[in-house]
Simulated scan of single mutants.
Amino acid sequence: MPIIRLQTIIKAPIDRCFDLSRSIDLHTLSTQQTNERAVAGVVAGLIDLHETVTWEATHFGIRQKLTSNITELERPHRFVDEMVKGAFKRIWHEHRFEALSADETRMTDTFDYTSPLGFLGKLADVLFLEKYMTRLLLTRNQVIKEVAESNQWKALLQREKVLK
């Protein structure tokens, strides 16, 4: 049961960081390397409490689907998504946001998962899976940071408002 904890300092207000982290469109942008796309549930815009999204992506050469549900949401400080269905035995992902100043936010991810296949899953964690998942999260966080700190967030979040 690896637990991945990452912190990212973003030079942007907490509300912007929170909303970008819930953006289906930004998530898709940050996972281009796996051709990830939302195929069911909330497929565009901002995901909210008790809403689900089903992602389809290619990992390790295999096309996979994973459905997540937003189980907790305390705007703009935290939300949790949990796997409902997918290749893992369990995923619990907490997103925390702390305003360090009016224009600076600390974003903290806690990604707690259990691989399938018992001992083989634990071996995969040690050999490659934990590193792979960490890289995916770091890439996602870097995209959130770049979008939040540039003017790109305006078009993205304006589109979100139109969709709601």
Results as ranks from 00 to 15, higher is better:
residue 95 H to L: 00
residue 60 F to D: 09
residue 62 I to L: 15
residue 23 S to P: 02
residue 65 K to E: 14
residue 80 V to F: 03
residue 101 S to E: 14
residue 110 T to E: 11
residue 112 D to S: 07
residue 42 V to Y: 09
residue 56 E to A: 12
residue 154 K to Y: 14
residue 75 R to K: 11
residue 15 D to H: 15
residue 136 L to V: 14
residue 70 I to G: 05
residue 163 L to C: 07
residue 69 N to P: 03
residue 17 C to V: 14
residue 94 E to P: 03
residue 149 E to S: 09
residue 64 Q to G: 04
residue 152 Q to D: 06
residue 92 W to A: 00
residue 73 L to P: 00
residue 147 V to C: 04
residue 84 V to K: 10
residue 9 I to T: 11
residue 117 L to S: 13
residue 147 V to S: 03
residue 49 L to T: 08
residue 16 R to I: 08
residue 157 L to A: 03
residue 18 F to C: 00
residue 24 I to V: 12
residue 54 T to Y: 08
residue 60 F to A: 09
residue 71 T to H: 08
residue 23 S to L: 08
residue 31 T to V: 11
residue 157 L to Y: 02
residue 162 V to Y: 12
residue 16 R to M: 07
residue 87 A to C: 06
residue 153 W to F: 11
residue 31 T to Q: 15
residue 36 E to F: 02
residue 50 H to K: 15
residue 96 R to N: 08
residue 134 T to C: 08
residue 104 E to A: 13
residue 152 Q to Y: 10
residue 72 E to L: 12
residue 52 T to W: 15
residue 16 R to S: 01
residue 66 L to R: 07
residue 61 G to N: 06
residue 105 T to I: 01
residue 109 D to H: 07
residue 144 I to H: 04
residue 77 H to C: 10
residue 61 G to L: 07
residue 44 A to E: 13
residue 138 L to P: 00
residue 58 T to W: 12
residue 57 A to M: 11
residue 21 S to G: 11
residue 78 R to M: 05
residue 101 S to L: 13
residue 122 K to V: 01
residue 54 T to K: 11
residue 35 N to W: 09
residue 141 N to H: 08
residue 46 L to A: 03
residue 122 K to L: 07
residue 80 V to E: 00
residue 123 L to T: 05
residue 88 F to G: 00
residue 2 P to T: 00
residue 140 R to W: 02
residue 156 L to E: 07
residue 13 P to D: 15
residue 21 S to C: 13
residue 66 L to P: 01
residue 164 K to E: 14
residue 47 I to V: 14
residue 12 A to F: 03
residue 83 M to W: 11
residue 123 L to N: 00
residue 5 R to K: 13
residue 164 K to Q: 12
residue 140 R to L: 07
residue 17 C to H: 01
residue 92 W to K: 05
residue 71 T to A: 10
